[in-house]
Amino acid sequence: MESKYQYLTFIGLRFNVANCLSILVTALLVFLFTFLLSRKLTVKPGKGQNVLEYLIDFTNGIVKSIMPGDEGKPFYFYIFVLFTFILFANILGLFFQVRVNGFTFTKSPTADPMVTMPLAMITLLMSHYFSVQKFGFKGYLHNFASPVSFLLPVNLIEEFTNFLTLSLRLYGNIYAGEVLIGLLIMVANSMGVVSVVLAAPMTMIWQGFSVFIGAIQAYVFSILSCVYFSRKLEREE
């Protein structure tokens, strides 16, 4: 199944309307989710506060599992928002696809490399920033040539592979999920009632599995971000 998108051009930049809309919807959902759950805060937490605190504890746990102690504190908040945002983005496309005149208007924003790449870029830039902050610019540069100087090219290439693997892993998983759902819908439409009966349970199973994949990918993205942070903060000999 081919998805068609509408494009807008603004100051020489091309915008995919579907991506922009779904990014906006995801961000709104994340904000509403955290905003509504954090009303009426009390020392003895109510239902909503408990859910939010559980999520915060979970994402803090991701950071703590990589960086136990105080060095992980600056990342708690970033990992929390990152995890929630990617989770919501991954799941959004599974049940919320709006199509008008053959043009798709909402989907999983993470099913596009142009969306996952800036996410990975934020993570990696943050890791470089904190590395400079901790070791100074000299120490930061020195870290590229450690433990031995001839590893410098490998370390430089690693920065790019980190960026590519981090962004393309997320994109590939979610995009594949969307493609498969599209194919299953094509199967359902191909031969009338018979194929609908056949395809419906398969679609349901795949959607359930996609929720699982979406959660796993959000978790993997968060934990790998933490790994990159910690590696940038540790490698000093």
């Binding site: 998108y5 494009y7 807008l8 603004f10 930049l13 091309r14 915008f15 995919n16 991506n19 922009c20 990014i23 906006l24 961000a27 928002v81 945002f85 924003p109 596009d112 490399p113 142009m114 969306v115 790449m117 800036p118 996410l119 934020i122």
Partner: peptide, 15 residues
């Protein structure tokens, strides 16, 4: 091929 740089910028701002 049809990747649009605007999306990346939009995501950065929104995020």
């Amino acid at each position: 091929d049809v990747a649009s740089l605007g999306d990346s910028l939009f995501l950065l701002v929104v995020f």
